[in-house]
Design a protein around this nucleic acid. Structure first.
Lengths: 232, 232
DNA sequence: GGCGGAGTATGGTCTGACCATACAATGGTC
DNA sequence: GACCATTGTATGGTCAGACCATACTCCGCC
């Protein structure tokens, strides 16, 4: 018998079975966001497991942004399928950053990748730019770094949404959320935000003008200003 | 009183408190991958909550790829901090794809973004290309579409790893995992894999030659061949 | 018709028990 | 002393049953 022919038997825990069955039901019945899952007690009885196991499966699904549980009684109570990957991604990034398993530089790089892509895509599509303009005005009126960063986040997320790709937009939102602290530090370090605002207007102009390459360059220059490579 | 001045009181559930405290400990004590968490029973007693609540928190952390639990006794037993975001990302993508909350086209687009970026980064850094070459040979010897896709996945993941960014590499692995089905379909649809292999060699040559723009173009052309825009 | 209290279904939590697992400690055997 | 089988024990995994808080539903009173 050859060595390493034995792979470790992956014991499957009860709640993993429950998860698999729920996922199968989603696929087979074509369930989608807004549909409801049976109550925990019912599910436990139907699957022949304890309510604890069902609850642990629910917790996993909730963590992944796939179900949302409401207590009480009525049409809105119980577990309903949703599709909110944002908080799941945010939690994931935040925790792994906290574990020092990811460097801030890696996250900033990823953000640069996403923003370049989004800006180019947005420029190609001539999207609605009202959200971008609103965020610009918000940054103009900001009185504290925190307030500025809030509208800055709105600007960059709006850029990602303008790309039309929901996965990329969700990833962008999560990156911003998990990096809020660094963003505030960067603004404080810079002191003056007029340069950032000039960058933002340049990005907006490129998107409006449909110039993909200029949009890429504008975003790259902007992030280089906000996060100079020697700052992390 | 202005409208919408009231935000919904977000009742915090017990297991969320447990989660917050564990996260705080990770941050304050500088815990990192490999460190261990107290046993569930101890944690429950110390926090003054039931073991069920601790377990639900553990399930969340496990889902996010932050802890791994082993039964039994000894140095390897108990809950240990890890950093495995891959399966979390994979589950997230797979479930949201299943809920029809994401279109395959969005995932493919995201993949194109990541690969272009990775290829350019890899070309800029003159990385070790032995993994890429090994995957190439594997594809040459593949006898079934499934086998080809397996080595193809290895090739593209190796490309992402060559970028040096672990977050992007993890995202790439998850994208490939959640899209394995589509990849096999694409190979079967094409029938002949010689074109794909020519693309791969062109990508490798660009990376070896340090030509970032050519690497970008090669990846873009390759994905356009594998997933023609009218196929999804 | 409207309003208020009782009823009830739901998720959230707790307690206590038992099981399976895998190491630790012990003691016997050679 | 080295080795091995037995027993003990700490750990996660599961279950059953209870109780609580919540929020809707229903029914009866006004």
């Amino acid at each position: 018998m050859s060595e390493s022919a034995w792979r470790p038997v992956r014991r499957t825990r009860t709640f993993e079975d429950v998860l698999a069955q729920i996922e199968r039901r989603i696929a087979e019945d074509g369930l989608t966001a807004g549909d409801r899952l049976p109550p925990e007690r019912t599910l436990a009885e139907q699957l022949g497991v304890s309510r604890s196991s069902v609850r642990e499966a629910m917790r996993v699904l909730e963590t992944l942004g796939v179900v949302s549980s409401q207590v009480g009684r009525g049409p809105d109570a119980g577990a309903v399928l949703v599709s909110k990957p944002d908080s799941a991604l945010t939690d994931l990034l935040r925790l792994h950053l906290g574990l020092a398993a990811l460097e801030p530089g890696e996250v900033i790089d990823t953000r640069l990748m996403i923003e370049c892509w989004s800006a180019a895509r947005a420029a190609a599509g001539r999207p609605d730019t009202s959200a971008l303009e609103r965020a610009l005005r918000g940054m103009d009126g900001a009185r504290t770094p925190e307030e500025f960063v809030e509208h800055d986040t709105a600007f960059h997320c709006a850029l990602a949404e303008a790309s039309g790709n929901r996965l990329i937009a969700a990833f962008m939102r999560s990156l911003r959320d998990s990096m809020r602290r660094y963003a505030v530090e960067a603004v404080i370090r810079l002191g003056d935000t007029s340069g950032l605002q000039a960058d933002h207007r340049r990005i907006l102009a490129a998107v409006r003008g449909g110039d993909q390459e200029e949009a890429r360059r504008a975003v790259t220059d902007h992030l280089a200003r906000a996060y100079p490579p020697d700052a992390h």
